[in-house]
Write a protein that binds this DNA or RNA. Structure first.
Lengths: 133, 133
DNA sequence: TCTATTAGGGACTTCACAGGTCTATAATAG
DNA sequence: CTATTATAGACCTGTGAAGTCCCTAATAGA
């Protein structure tokens, strides 16, 4: 069980955009170079973030990607869910009447993890670590 | 990102063995029937639990699988790690000097989840829920 | 209005791995 | 000796991650 590389790319791109936070959008070309990934592939990933409403894209010359107004509230969990989906990481496929006790345990553990990821905003991370681009 | 079905089978088998806790070993045939999975496949999974030292197998007539002496201390995390491996669920593949801040966040979240899974013993679950086979 | 530049989308490929099956081998109770 | 049980290895199949390629749409600037 692992998070996908796409999630890795998404988190790092958001870190970069948050640390840069320019009015001027940043092209996928530039974003892709920093992570040694192909621009076409990265653009597919970023399109998911656009659809999730975290960033916006500007087509045409001098276009690219840029954070939206609510960017200070974006959490790690937001980004991860946008890429990985929001399905829970365990499904009991067995049949023991009402509610599997195993499922309950694993889901409460998952909830602990998500709680931390929900409370960790990307903007706070940038501020705390004094990350500058 | 999901836990494998193998983990599902392993957890349920351990729940069953813990609730039954007989001196007499239980055959994979019987264990497999309850979960509607093939005996050969389940035996592959249980072999991992044997190698991890959680259960022991007895070959031959009236053989099967049985918990080992330390069975009361076996946690969810023990079982999950035996099946899924112990690798962390996120690897930063980017290069930002010493220590990726994103990696730190995700790993601390994972640690929260594992903490709960480590503290939840299968034997406690059986006792609390009064599970009887 | 044309052109260079940018993102979006669909079709496709490749590879690894989950989730099995099948068969042969080894151990052991009776 | 035989029936029963676990173990191991080879094999198969489907799915999803991780990309690539190419065509289309939008738009800033000449």
């Amino acid at each position: 069980m692992k998070y996908s590389k796409a999630t890795d790319y998404a988190l790092h791109t958001m870190l970069f955009l948050t640390a840069a936070t320019p009015q001027k959008p940043i092209g996928v070309q530039q974003l892709a170079e920093r992570q040694s990934v192909s621009p076409t592939y990265l653009s597919k990933i970023l399109t998911k973030l656009v659809k999730a409403g975290m960033i916006e894209s500007i087509t045409g010359v001098n276009g690219g990607y840029r954070l939206k107004r609510n960017w200070e509230d974006i959490s790690f969990l937001d980004i991860i869910h946008a890429i990985e989906g929001s399905a829970s990481l365990f499904d009991c496929s067995f049949d023991h009447g009402p509610g599997c006790p195993i499922q309950k345990v694993v889901l409460s553990a998952e909830e602990k993890m998500e709680e931390l990821l929900r409370n960790q905003k990307m903007s706070d991370l940038v501020r705390e670590h004094n990350i500058v681009i």
